[in-house]
Design a binder for these strands. Structure first.
Lengths: 239, 239
DNA sequence: AACACATGGTTAATGGTATTCGCGATTTAA
DNA sequence: TTAAATCGCGAATACCATTAACCATGTGTT
């Protein structure tokens, strides 16, 4: 039973429309093209009206951020779920590939979630870094699994620089998994490479030489899987 | 002999001032805070006057980009020059550290030169990627030296994925050094890691866990130097 | 020295943006 | 039925970029 009053229904519809429009504009023109006036025009209302729904332009950006985050996390999770549950190599590969593909297809979204736009939407305090948490957990589960199976080469805590250990510990705790410090460091080592390639590709720094970035991606994955004692799975399912 | 007419002198002064102001504003408030009106206010003229000097706001941004590029390249080159000319490990370490330090101290500049801002200032055609060229040459010289000394482990061209080889070749040619494909690939492998850490640090994604990013940096440098068959130099000079 | 021209600043105007405020209409709830 | 909450609007303020017309002044020439 939809015990929704007329007002509530109309309000929900307009908000939904506005969020969709805001997201479309952001993807098409970048977040700097996302303006209160443009959204208002698209949903057929005057700009001040949107202030009843969002906290100004910043609120619109924040709404886009939230929607995009959900989409991103779900996309990556789906890609993992498509793989053979026992093939961790394929799962890692697919997850990373999904991150890259999604990012290239949603550059403005990437910028907002994981790139230069994040500090702006997050502000000083910082939204609890959804990406660090969500993505970290997703990858972390796979690392944990390799660890349980006893086939994950990782440094002993004593062999890690003393000033690095407490920081890695905080990182591990943000992810929220009970991983050894050496494994968390291994994750960071992987992420710094993935993230580097991501930014290079999304921000267009590779265009001049690497029109298609997939060869570079595969080369990186071979490196990373090797780092984890794995090889590329022959049963990878792309979707 | 300064055969400068009064007009020319005044013009040069105002342009110099405006560029300096534009750069200061950019560093303090980010490039989105760089406005024609603000610069005009700071140099004591009305906004339209600046159109005699710059091609509107875009021209201002471009001017900042040029100045910042020169500063960046010089800073990194200086850091290298400070090292023992025969200690390639120290030179590589110092160069990378200089890139990181400069980027953290000039976040808006980093964004413009190497980050999300670059596509905007570069436009479609793309300024011949100064960074790729300048930085590539700087690091490339060091790699070339290691290669000449015969102590740079790198993959043979036959062992590199066939679709990657031609891309690497283009990359190598942009840098403008006569390096084997395997060495150029090695450079790209290093750069993707350095760049990843850079973006993570500059865009604030590490703040939550890694307040100070130097331990992570040193960990990465150990990895990278190891990749090149080097160890961290005991004679590194920091400045 | 007087002239004409180029230069570089001004003001005014246009049109875009965000945001706040107060009004009136409509819907909801008592 | 009536009072209150909600919501959209128009007007106003204050930024911004950019163009056009205009005017003073510097420059070089006659």
């Amino acid at each position: 039973m939809t015990a929704l009053t007329r007002r509530e229904r109309l309000r929900a519809e307009l908000e939904r429309d506005a969020r969709a429009v805001a997201r479309r504009i952001t993807e098409e023109e970048g977040v700097e093209g996302l303006t209160v006036a443009a959204v208002a025009r698209a949903v057929g209302v005057t700009p001040p009206a949107l202030y009843r729904y969002f906290d100004g332009r910043a609120g619109l950006v924040r709404a886009v951020y939230d929607d995009v985050t959900a989409d991103f996390v779900e996309t990556v999770a789906r890609a993992v779920a498509r793989q053979d549950p026992d093939d961790v190599s394929a799962q890692l590969h697919a997850a990373t590939r999904a991150v890259l593909d999604w990012s290239m297809a949603h550059r403005a979204g990437f910028d907002l979630l994981m790139g230069a736009g994040f500090p702006k939407v997050a502000g000083e305090d910082g939204i609890p870094t959804v990406i660090l948490r969500e993505l970290g957990r997703l990858f972390g589960e796979l690392f944990a699994r390799l660890l349980r199976e006893g086939r994950l080469p990782h440094p002993a805590e004593e062999d890690i620089a003393p000033d690095l250990v407490p920081q890695i510990r905080v990182y591990r705790d943000i992810i929220g998994l009970d991983l050894p410090v050496g494994v968390a460091l291994l994750m960071m080592t992987c992420w710094r490479q993935i993230y580097g390639l991501l930014c290079l590709a999304v921000y267009g720094h590779l265009r001049a030489a690497f029109g298609d970035h997939l060869p570079l991606f595969e080369h990186m994955m071979d490196d990373l899987l090797g780092l984890l004692g794995l090889t590329r799975s022959p049963h990878l399912r792309v979707g």
